[in-house]
């Protein structure tokens, strides 16, 4: 079973203060730590599990700058066979359909059974690239998948729906699956794997190498435009309890007990 797994490098903003930069269309990311997108990490693990069960190879695909190489090498260390990084500043990363076009160009024409992506990137939250990629490749897809059972020429997946219900869907291969977090337990890369990963092939390509006309995936031809970022006004009615940590705890305890909340 030959698998492509698409990964993205994203900032961890879960506890960070986010400020809009001077362009008004980006954020100051100088203080963020970056790593593989959470759902993509689960997609990498799922690719490894499928490879271990069914044989074949796993190729990692990423649109990003050289900064992404550490993350890509980690995926190779876990058992990926080779990687392609498309490094081209002309790609309009704001538009998920254009990003999908770029990834499709890297995969099209190659033999594959499955393409796995994370179902959502934690930075832009689009939840769109994987499904758009399937359409570009002309293959079926299923989004937000929490279980994958590969058969012969088919794949059965459980899509996670609202309210904890799953929808079981079967598709003909090849297909694209977008992976939901929690589907597996992502492994740590073994030391031996990390050493081996340094020797594995990581091709860095430009749009021209993929035969993609830069204007087709650039801002000028995008059908959507980001006008500006702004920090939303937080409409909080919360009474914020002040003091030293232990004082805050005491005040909260008293509020809960005396306020009849407990």
């Amino acid at each position: 079973m030959n698998i492509f797994v698409c990964v993205k490098r994203v900032p961890d903003t879960s506890e960070a203060i986010v400020k809009v930069d001077d362009s008004g269309k980006g954020v100051d990311n100088s203080k963020f730590s970056f790593d593989i997108n959470e759902a993509d990490n689960y997609a990498v693990e799922e690719a490894m599990l499928l490879k271990e069960a069914k044989g074949g190879n796993v190729q990692v695909v990423c649109a990003g700058t050289q900064d992404a190489d550490v993350m890509i090498r980690m995926a190779l260390a876990k058992g990926g066979d080779s990687a392609i990084r498309i490094d081209d500043p002309r790609i309009n990363v704001i538009d998920p359909l254009q990003v999908a076009k770029v990834l499709a160009a890297a995969i099209k024409g190659k033999e594959f059974d499955l393409v796995l992506t994370g179902c959502m990137a934690n930075d832009d939250g689009n939840m769109a690239v994987g499904v758009a990629l399937a359409e570009e490749l002309g293959v079926p897809h299923a989004a937000m998948v929490k279980k994958v059972e590969a058969g012969e020429g088919t794949v059965k997946v459980h899509r996670e729906l609202e309210g904890g219900v799953s929808e079981v869907v079967e598709m003909d291969l090849p297909a694209v699956i977008t992976i939901q977090t929690g589907i597996n337990e992502p492994r740590y890369a073994p030391i031996r794997g990390i050493r081996q990963a340094q020797k594995k092939e990581l091709s860095v390509l430009k749009l021209d190498d993929l035969g993609v006309a830069p204007e087709d995936v650039g801002e000028d031809t995008s059908l959507i435009a980001l006008e500006n970022f702004y920090i939303p006004e937080v409409e909080s009615k919360a009474e914020i309890i002040e003091g030293e940590p232990e004082e805050k705890a005491v005040i909260l305890a008293e509020k809960m007990v005396k306020g009849g909340l407990l």
Binding site: P11, V18, G125, L223, I224, L226, F229, I231, P232
Partner: peptide, 19 residues
């Protein structure tokens, strides 16, 4: 002019359609 969010709700973005 659609509005959406980035960085899990920490930043809002004003968008426009072209075409």
């Amino acid at each position: 002019k659609p509005v959406r969010q980035y960085y899990q709700g920490k930043v809002n973005a004003n968008f426009a359609f072209k075409g």
